[in-house]
């Protein structure tokens, strides 16, 4: 029998050195991991903090309810047209992406075979990872070049961005629906689509809405596709989504921060604050809903 080089083990004696080194490594690893988590929190706090500090001065009721003041360097006015416009573009995009995303998720969980599901999941993940400027260029070439910028073109680009997010989160939520429930419906002699409509979708509804809200929050802040498809617009509220470019918050932030007037800079910060607040509210409410959903499905 060969002996190893490590000293014989005693509780307090020979191995002390080794033990101390291992304890130190352990502590170091724990410390650096904790620090990294701290950095993440700090970055978010700094970004949100600076936006709040710099944007708060611009924020007022008129800022939210009035259209921009006309004229270079003008004082007053607001971004009401951009808030309405962003909401419109994102709403139309959601109306396209959500039903499609749910159907894709249903296909993946209920109908796909072990051979067809993985490639489709991969495609969704690739689409999710596609740079949004690429999607923007694609829509630009398809819809804008021969015609003009429209809010609708932006909606389609945002829909493409939202689609994989919605499909994947919905799929995850559908997988959470216990197989027991499917069995119960099956055993009652109910057709598959009836089971899906009556049991599976309602059970996962909260989670599906959560995924939708998260995707919507992301779409609200997307800038690259808007730069190409929806950036030349006027100072008034426009709902003509198929005919013209529609004012929106990300482009306002971009344009105001490029301007030479300090009043415009304040507006850019104000618009940024409005955007970040919208996204934060969306995220938090989605998370609350998700927690409720999990409790509902698991808490039996």
């Amino acid at each position: 029998m060969t002996t190893t080089s490590s000293p014989s083990t005693t509780l307090l004696g020979a191995e002390d050195l080794n033990l101390r080194r291992r304890r130190l490594t352990d502590r170091l690893m724990r410390l650096s991991a904790t620090a990294a988590a701290g950095v993440a929190v700090a970055v978010l706090a700094i970004v949100v903090g600076s936006v709040v500090i710099k944007g708060a001065s611009a924020l007022s009721i008129p800022f939210l309810t009035q259209n921009p003041a006309v004229g270079l360097g003008a004082v007053g006015g607001g971004i009401a047209n951009a808030i309405v416009g962003s909401a419109l573009i994102v709403a139309v995009g959601t109306a396209m992406a959500l039903p499609l995303g749910i159907l894709i998720a249903l296909y993946l969980t209920e109908f796909a075979t072990p051979r067809t599901a993985p490639p489709i999941r991969l495609v969704l993940d690739l689409l999710n990872g596609t740079p949004t400027i690429v999607i923007g260029v694609f829509i630009f070439g398809l819809l804008v070049v021969s015609h003009s910028q429209t809010g609708f073109a932006a909606s389609i680009a945002l829909a493409i961005i939202m689609l994989p997010l919605m499909a994947r989160t919905t799929q995850e939520m559908l997988l959470l629906v216990p197989g027991d429930l499917r069995n119960a419906a099956h055993a009652l002699g109910v057709r598959r689509w009836r089971m899906i409509l009556g049991i599976v979708l309602p059970s996962a509804l909260g989670g599906i809405l959560t995924g939708a809200i998260l995707a919507v929050a992301r779409a609200f802040g997307e800038t690259a596709p808007l730069l190409l498809c929806d950036s030349v617009f006027g100072n008034t509220t426009s709902l003509n989504i198929f005919g013209t470019a529609i004012p929106n918050i990300p482009m306002d932030i971009y344009r105001y921060s490029e301007s030479g007037f300090p009043t415009d800079h304040a507006r850019a910060w104000g618009a940024a604050l409005v955007l970040i607040a919208l996204i934060l509210v969306g995220n938090l409410s989605a998370r609350a809903m998700l927690a409720r959903q999990r409790r509902r499905l698991a808490g039996r």
């Binding site: 216990p178 027991d180 429930l181 069995n183 119960a184 419906a185 049991i199 059970s203 509902r296 499905l297």
Partner: peptide
């Protein structure tokens, strides 16, 4: 079934 599985 083995485990009670009422619908939610």
């Amino acid at each position: 079934f083995q485990r009670p599985n009422p619908f939610p």
